[in-house]
Design a protein around this nucleic acid. Structure first.
Length: 270
DNA sequence: TCAAGATGATCAG
DNA sequence: TGATCCTCTTGAT
């Protein structure tokens, strides 16, 4: 379930659970044995996220770089570690908690230089205080690609995934196929501010709620849907159902290899 | 029991 | 653009 807010939360939770502790590091699955051995028994200095990337730093200058991809997951549990269940790529064991990583697309050992290279590839992250929306706008304004594709491009904007893409565009009443160059600076700034707000809420609650009483009291309770991912949404995975706002049927199409959802009436192309 | 799909990204052609 | 990788859950058979 990883979009940027998930990684941000994980970094905070990992830091809270393990920072300053000597941790046991292993790879029960066997696919990260050498990397785990390089930091096993060392003190964990902290964890941070950037977009959908997670960096776990150790006192011997090695960093574990994790990208969960579509299906990866990292769970932190209290107490002594249980027998590993399933394919646990990486396990961290601290004084009173342990963490298991499964299904990640990337789990590798890197140094500070490689970390800097990864960060340099990423666009601004709405969750980071140093995120500069103007940098993303420079790319968007020059592009003829649809805004629905640009939002998913991590070199344009880091941390936004398929749910935030669909929902933020709906809330902006912006058609996903609108070319980047046709999006005004004013609309982009509003979209960015909304993403900051939505993703910050995601960090606080651990779920993606975009239909919220303070934003849209009328939509709440009318036909609000709690999606399987655990949040209340306007269009995401609501194909064929009535739009909460206008009643039109929510449409879907594949864009950038992922399912895109939008309301053809509220997000009419201008 | 098996196949499909899922909040992602990369690489070859 | 399509194939591929990673794991788990859900729904069809």
């Amino acid at each position: 379930m990883p979009e940027g807010h998930t990684l941000y939360r994980l970094a905070a939770d990992l830091s809270a659970a393990f920072t300053g502790q000597r941790v046991e590091v292993c790879s029960p699955q066997g696919r990260f044995v050498d990397g785990a051995a390089a930091v096993d028994g060392h003190t964990l200095d902290g964890a941070e996220s950037a977009g959908k990337h997670l960096f776990i730093s150790f006192d011997n200058d090695w960093i574990i770089h994790v990208h969960l991809g579509l299906i990866g997951g990292l769970r932190i549990e209290e107490g002594r570690p249980a027998e590993p269940l399933g394919a646990v790529r990486l396990r961290l064991v601290g004084r009173s908690a342990y963490a298991d990583l499964r299904g990640a697309i990337t789990c590798e050992l890197i140094d500070a230089g490689a970390r800097a290279t990864i960060l340099a590839r990423l666009g601004p992250d709405p969750l980071r205080e140093d995120g500069e929306p103007g940098k993303a706008f420079d790319r968007i304004a020059k592009s003829r690609k649809p805004i629905g594709a640009l939002l998913m491009d991590q070199s344009v904007l880091a941390g936004v995934g398929n749910v935030y893409r669909a929902e933020s565009l709906f809330r902006a009443r912006l058609n996903p196929m609108t070319p980047g160059g046709k999006v005004s600076r004013r609309r982009w700034d509003a979209l960015w501010a909304d993403l900051v707000d939505l993703m910050d809420h995601g960090v606080q609650t651990g779920r993606i709620d975009t239909v919220r009483p303070e934003h849209d009291p009328e939509a709440m309770g009318r036909d609000a849907r709690v999606d399987d991912h655990g949040g209340e949404v306007y269009v995401y995975r609501r194909t064929g159902q009535a739009c909460h706002v206008c009643g039109s049927r929510v449409k879907t199409a594949v864009l950038e290899g992922r399912n895109l959802f939008w309301c053809p009436a509220c997000q009419r192309r201008r």
